[in-house]
Design a protein around this nucleic acid. Sequence first.
DNA 1: AGATTAAAAGACATTTTTATCCTTTTTATG
DNA 2: CATAAAAAGGATAAAAATGTCTTTTAATCT
Lengths: 143, 143
Amino acid sequence: MLSNSSKYAIKGVLYLALNSNADHKILVRDIYETVHVPEAYLAKLLQELSRHDIISSTRGPKGGFYLSENDRQHTLMEIVKVIDGEKRVNSCVMGIRNCNMDNPCVLHKLIGSNKSKFIKVLENTTILDLIEGKEDVEEFFPF
Amino acid sequence: MLSNSSKYAIKGVLYLALNSNADHKILVRDIYETVHVPEAYLAKLLQELSRHDIISSTRGPKGGFYLSENDRQHTLMEIVKVIDGEKRVNSCVMGIRNCNMDNPCVLHKLIGSNKSKFIKVLENTTILDLIEGKEDVEEFFPF
DNA sequence: AGATTAAAAGACATTTTTATCCTTTTTATG
DNA sequence: CATAAAAAGGATAAAAATGTCTTTTAATCT
Ligand code: FES
Ligand code: FES
């Protein structure tokens, strides 16, 4: 349903949400161990997100990645779509085509409804939603 | 969550459930088009399931794949486990490790419960459950 | 028994996903 | 303006998933 890359990306963004802001940018070098993602690979993912304006970054000395206040309003789905593309999340449990509510497959009644909920969560949950009131950073990054 | 291979396998088994029995075995050649799965690839998957006694097969003339009465009692999860292995279905949305209910990640509250339901459906639904009362074969195999 | 048929098994090919490395560009700052 | 720090980009590699093809084994029929 979600690729490893998407999970990695979400973890990276979550770390930024917890630890960065426009005045305190962060290097990939300082993230990757905590979130358990290979350094260069995480860099690639964050760059991709930055290019799509999901997160922010600046180059040069004192540069790094960070989340602006605005960035925190992005949903998990936006991250997933950038990394995995639209198709992956929407694909029907039975076919390879998109899940079609009008012409549901046999499994849709059993499983599709859960899947729809899953998708709705991704669509409705913002970065901010996830971190608010949370201080214990460790719980965010299980291995 | 489910690999294409697992989806393919489920579709193949479903076709067998609808069209075969111990006295009427079926060739992969006669399944793959309806089910929209490459012939050789489907053969491989069914062989794997047969080896694990999820479905039945006999070689030689008049041979083919089929479902015994007993085979129909197998659950979707058993199919998925043979094809994808245990890890894939259980993996945590955040980590790569298994979803751990005792030490849930931040997303578990939001998503994990849906996932658990999804898994329960796979575990509790047998082949027989899926086909009983269903005559319209086409609805089983969306593209 | 021998020929034929059909699945099992395994070798091979392609594609996608995941991961690393190295160079180039940008930019803050001394 | 030179330098150093950092993201961005490109090229490549390794691994896993997906898909195809050929050979082997075994059942059945004549
Ligand atoms: S149509 Fe198959 S899961 Fe929705
Ligand atoms: S612990 Fe992460 S989804 Fe359950």
